[in-house]
């Protein structure tokens, strides 16, 4: 197997507060290869966005990376200075955020925003940049790109705006795209268009994509592999098919069961009791044990086994066996 585009090793993010140090990301490891879409899924507060922000160096202080390594194409990027990181963002790593309106500057024509990014990162002339901007808009499916390049963001619909944001993320030809809930603000039919677009770009260009979302349906449809996060830790990591159909961590199992999609025809949804603990009040041992149907003394005493990037599926002492999965 070729070298992964992104390797995250034992990443720890800490936020010092008055009452103690919080760990929104705790010993997370995973790889993304070229042309692969890795889904990162979890409920709010699970640390999925924080992981993405740590990779691209956009952690808001006082949050900081306090341990582990992030390697982009074999080079460490977690210890770069601000100036080096700035050069990396946009050039090597593209970013797509949830809300397409706030990620575009409302006062600049979209063409200017695209060419600005390219001129900052690539050694090309203004005219070349404009040509490439039109090509990029064309590629993401904006009709009549040559005439719409001089429009302002407010002149586009939500779905079209998200396409512009994707074009912006792509225009410097990065090797990694981090898409943080890219379809959450969009309608179902537009969501299908954006997912199809991301998949096509990933396949055609060999870009690695980290897709952060809370929607299991989107994960099942778009991703090759999926990482499930719970309370800052990796709960399960595996191919989409395995994780969705044969979840091994009791949390993943519960999560799958509680989507109305999975329990079709049943009158009641399977539910996980309780809710995710706050970071300041994490229980001892495995963070999931108070909600876990299979918890035993060991789960209450020591945290689950740490998942390595390339082997191991579930960070659980007593993983669910295939036969036990109810759904």
């Amino acid at each position: 197997m070729s070298e992964p585009v992104l390797s995250v090793r034992n990443l720890v993010v800490e936020i010092p507060t008055r009452t103690g140090v919080l760990r929104p990301v705790d010993k997370v490891s995973y790889d993304i290869s070229a042309g692969e879409i890795l889904g990162v899924v979890g409920e709010s507060g699970a640390g999925k966005s924080m992981t993405g922000n740590a990779v691209i160096g956009l952690l808001d202080p006082p949050a900081r990376i306090s341990g582990g390594e992030i390697l982009l194409k074999g080079q460490r990027i977690d210890n770069l200075g601000r100036e080096d990181l700035r050069k990396l963002r946009g050039k090597e790593i593209g970013m797509v955020f949830q809300d397409p309106l706030t990620s575009l500057n409302p006062l600049l024509r979209i063409g200017d925003q695209l060419t600005e990014t390219m001129l900052a990162h690539l050694d090309i002339t203004q005219d070349e940049a404009r040509g490439r901007a039109i090509a990029a808009l064309d590629e993401v499916g904006i009709p009549a790109a040559a005439s719409r390049i001089d429009s302002y963001p407010h002149e586009f619909s939500g779905g079209m705006r998200q396409r512009v944001v994707i074009a912006l993320a792509l225009c410097a030809e990065p090797s990694l795209i981090i898409a943080d809930e890219p379809t959450t603000a969009l309608d179902v039919s537009v969501q299908a268009q954006i997912i199809a677009l991301l998949k096509r770009l990933c396949r055609d260009r060999g870009t690695a994509v980290m897709l952060v979302t809370h929607d299991m349906g989107v994960i099942a449809e778009a991703c090759d592999r999926v990482a499930v996060m719970y309370a800052g830790r990796l709960a399960e990591l595996g191919t989409v098919r395995d994780v969705v159909q044969r979840p091994r961590h009791p949390y993943t199992d519960g999560l799958m069961g509680s989507t109305p999609l999975a329990s079709r025809g049943q009158r009641r949804l399977r539910q996980i009791p309780g809710s995710m603990p706050r970071l300041g009040k994490l229980p001892d041992g495995c963070a999931f044990h108070p909600r876990c149907p299979k918890a035993e003394a060991r789960c209450r005493a020591e945290p689950g086994p740490t998942l390595e990037a390339d082997h191991g599926r579930a960070a659980c002492w007593f993983p669910v066996e295939a036969a036990e999965v109810v759904s």
């Binding site: 779905g159 079209m160 039919s189 268009q193 677009l197 099942a220 449809e221 098919r241 969705v244 799958m256």
Partner: peptide, 18 residues
């Protein structure tokens, strides 16, 4: 267009227009 749990690698023809 709605995502499906068993739609692994499904190639949907995305809906046209808005």
């Amino acid at each position: 267009a709605a995502p499906k749990m068993d739609g692994f690698g499904r190639e949907v023809v995305p809906p046209k227009g808005e």
